[in-house]
Each structure stands twice: as C-alpha cells, then as structure tokens.
C-alpha cells in the first residue's frame, strides 16, 4: 500500500512538472490556431480553429527568408564549431601540450562572457570588414560562443572513452589512422552528435547578435524577425502570425528533445559539472 501511495504522490508531482513545462508552449500553439476574431478572447483553448496564420507566414518572404537564414546560419555555425571543438577537445582530453590550461581557461572566460560587451566592437568591426548584415557576420560570433560549450561537452565525452582500446588496436596491428577510424571514431560519434544538438540549439536561440548585427532580410534570423513583425504590420494585429512563426521555430527543438532527451541531458551535465 505504501508503495502505491508513493507512486501516486510522485505521479502528482510529475504532473505539476509537466504542466509547468508545457503550459506556456501550449498557449502559444493555441494562439497560433486562433482566428482573428477570437484572438483576444483570452481563452486558453481556441474557440474556433484556423490554419490561416500559418498560411499567412509562409506566404510572406519576410518569414521564409528569416527561416532560411536561421537554418543556414545555425547549421553552418554548428558544423564548424563542432569540427573545431572536436579537434580541440581531443587535444585537451588526450594530449599533453603547453598552453592546455590556458585554452581551458580562455574557453571558460568566453562561456561566462557578457555577449553584449561584444556587440559594440563587433558592430563597428563588421561594418568595417563588410560582414555586417551577412551570414558570416553572425556565424563567426556563434562559433565563438558555441566553442566553449562544444569543447567542454566533447572533452567530457572523450574522457569517458576507454583509451586503452586505442592501445589494444595498435597491438592488434592497426596504424594510428586505422585505430582512430575503426575504434575511436565509432565510440566518439555519439558525443559529437550530442554536442552538435546542443550547439545547434544555442545558435538557433540567439537573439542579441541576430538583432544587433543584422539590418535587413539578408541575414535576419527568425527570432530577430519576430520582433520586427510587430512594427512592420501596423494595420493588423500580428499576434496570430507571430505565434505561428514561433511555433514553427519551436518544432525542431521539440523534436530534438523528444528523440534525444537522454543525450541532451548527458551532454549538458557532463560538460558543466566536473568540479
């Protein structure tokens, strides 16, 4: 009986957590399906449903262009950050070389760095270099701020790999390249993949750089574009379209979370807590 009681208690607590996490998301989903007439009725569940908001945003180049920017910039930044991060993390976890502690320290500094402090100089520098309002103009700072995350997470993963396997492979007659390709790479892949997800989420989320270092559709990402929906359509209440756009960019996050929950948890915790 006691066990059943404990289970019920936990079930109740779990439900509180689920409600906590989901209500704000469900609310914006609900808004996105509301018709113009019922948008301001304050009801949590739409009284009448419509897909019009989605039709609207996919018919505007503003949103489509921003979506392309978001996806492109986040993917490229993720790819580069993960490649550079993997190299550095391998070196940190595996090799002994001067300046290792310095590199760890610098990444830590950057992880704690107030990004807004970089906005002013980057704004000025990028204007000078012609990078302002371009993809590379956003990709560069994203890589920079994603690298500490990538390096920490990956080096934690790499430390978990039983490196004796590398020795075993050498004893089994493998060249260093073979040992890496056939033994180490397959073991490192999950960690690299997890890191890629975390880095992607980071780039996908950014707002400050996106709004400061862009000025047109050319490179404005969805989070930045969202805030301009408000100003640009004065004659129409943009709540519905903003909600629809917000839901669209939330979908990939939900998918990641659903499919890779375990990996994300492992990635976040392994990198951050190694006191």
């Amino acid at each position: 009986m006691a066990a059943i009681g404990a289970k019920t208690r936990w079930a109740l607590i779990d439900i509180v957590v689920v409600v906590y996490a989901l209500v704000p998301v469900l609310w914006i989903v609900s808004l996105s399906f509301k018709t113009k007439e019922t948008l301001t009725d304050g009801n949590f569940v739409p009284r009448s449903w419509t897909l019009q908001n989605y039709v609207d945003i996919f018919n505007t180049t503003v949103f489509l262009r921003a979506l392309v920017n978001s996806i492109g910039i986040a993917l490229i930044a993720t790819a580069i950050a993960v490649v550079l991060g993997t190299m550095a993390a391998y070196a940190i976890a595996r090799l002994d070389f001067p300046g290792k502690q310095a590199l760890v320290g610098v990444s830590l500094l950057i992880a704690m760095f107030p990004q807004v402090s970089l906005v002013s100089p980057l704004f000025e520098m990028e204007r000078g270099l012609g990078l302002f309002d371009t993809w590379p103009g956003l990709i560069l700072p994203y890589i920079t701020f994603a690298l500490p995350l990538a390096i920490y997470t990956l080096s934690a993963f790499f430390r978990e790999i039983p490196w004796e396997l590398e020795k075993a492979a050498k004893m089994d007659g493998a060249t260093p390249a073979q040992a890496f390709r056939r033994v180490i790479a397959p073991l490192a892949a999950p960690g690299v993949f997890t890191t890629a997800i975390l880095v992607f989420i980071f780039c996908w989320n950014d707002f400050l750089f996106a709004i400061s270092l862009t000025s047109t559709e050319a490179s404005r990402t969805v989070p930045a574009a969202l805030s301009f929906f408000t100003g640009s359509s004065q004659f129409e209440d943009p709540t519905g379209t903003i909600s629809a756009a917000a839901v669209v960019i939330t979908v990939p996050i939900i998918l990641f979370v659903l499919f890779f929950q375990r990996r994300i948890v492992a990635g976040l915790t392994s990198g951050a807590v190694k006191g």
């Binding site: 404990a6 704000p24 914006i28 707002f207 969202l226 939330t250 929950q261």
Partner: peptide
Amino acid sequence: LVMRGLVRTVALIPYGIVTVVAAFSWRY
C-alpha cells in the same frame, strides 16, 4: 518512481525553446 523519462523529456522543453518565443508566450 514513475514517468521518469517523461519528466526529464518535458523538463528540457523550457531549456531548448527559443527565449524570444517563450517571451512572446508570456507577453500574450
């Protein structure tokens, strides 16, 4: 004791969601 996977999955949503999206949700 129950639904550990579900709780962990759901709890990740606020972490993953785009801050601006969440902010709009709260604003509305």
